[in-house]
Design a binder for these strands. Structure first.
Lengths: 161, 161
DNA sequence: ACTAATCTTGACTTAAAAGTAAGGTATGCT
DNA sequence: AGCATACCTTACTTTTAAGTCAAGATTAGT
């Protein structure tokens, strides 16, 4: 359960674009330089983001990338989903071991955990927008901890099932 | 942001053991057979779990594995942490691109997201025990959705930062 | 129209995770 | 004591994700 390199770098590139004003744009090489990754790699990431409609590209001499929407309207849940190659559901189709289908198809206790977990993460991510990431660390920190505090208040002892 | 194969399979092996009564135990090959994975692979997973003190092994003819503690006292957060090679923190040390240190060291908007996200996941996982996974799907499903519902109630519009 | 700058796209290479194999060590049974 | 069972551990192979490269396509300016 961790954030992949592609998710991390892709998100960083978006944050760079979020810093710009509406008319500005950044070229691939400039983004790559600022993030300390190769131009080729940045190109791949931006292409993914472009295909998903999160950024807009302009070709030619004065070209570059900019956000397709205001940063305040781009939620991290969407970003992660796009960068994660969208292998969201269909979990029980993979990881089947040697067998053809999941051994736990009938009454599987793990499936809901995997799925529920995913929902929780997406939910938390949907509360944070790119615009917030542009601000100081503190603001984001506050938002996420607000969520967390609520969680711990929920079930102090554990489930009752 | 996804569950690795090792996490998934390791968790499954634990669930198998959680089904046993106190005096019973399962051999490697039996666990492997039930989960549809190779004996070698199961051996590796169980070794990790054993090293972490989650399961207990008995050698010799009548040997096998059993849980080191009651299933109701083993939280998924612990399980995942163990199976994930414990690369929990130290995130800004990796993913630095070509540069020596994280480009966002000074005022990084991404760091708190990564960290906060991790906390949220751990928090959610710590509310579910192995014992709950042994029950029906419904019970686990209920527990996780309880958490989720609370989250969405928290911030209907998005952050204010 | 030409040229330089820039994005686009698919194939290739490299690094990391997952899985496998084989030899070692401990235990119980005869 | 000796053999069979079963876990333990390290090293190796395979697979998959990440990253790179190079040729193609598009636009702005001259």
């Amino acid at each position: 359960m961790k954030v992949s390199a592609q998710e991390e770098y892709g998100l960083r590139c978006l944050v760079q674009l979020a810093h710009l004003s509406a008319s500005e744009s950044l070229t691939l090489s400039e983004i790559a330089r600022r993030e300390g990754i190769s131009v080729a790699n940045a190109g791949k990431l931006l292409w993914i983001l472009n295909k998903a409609g999160l950024v807009q590209s302009t070709r030619g001499t004065r070209g570059g990338y900019q956000l397709a929407r205001p940063a305040s309207e781009i939620r991290l849940s969407e970003v992660i989903k796009v960068l994660d190659a969208d292998e969201v559901e269909s979990h029980c189709k993979s990881y089947t071991g040697v067998l053809e289908v999941c051994v736990h198809t009938s009454d599987c206790g793990i499936r809901p955990v995997i799925q529920g977990l995913h929902e929780i993460v997406q939910n938390a991510l949907s509360e944070v927008t790119l615009a917030q990431l542009v601000g100081t660390e503190q603001s984001v920190d506050a938002t996420l901890h607000q969520i967390q505090k609520l969680q711990s208040r929920l079930s102090p002892t554990g489930g009752s099932a």
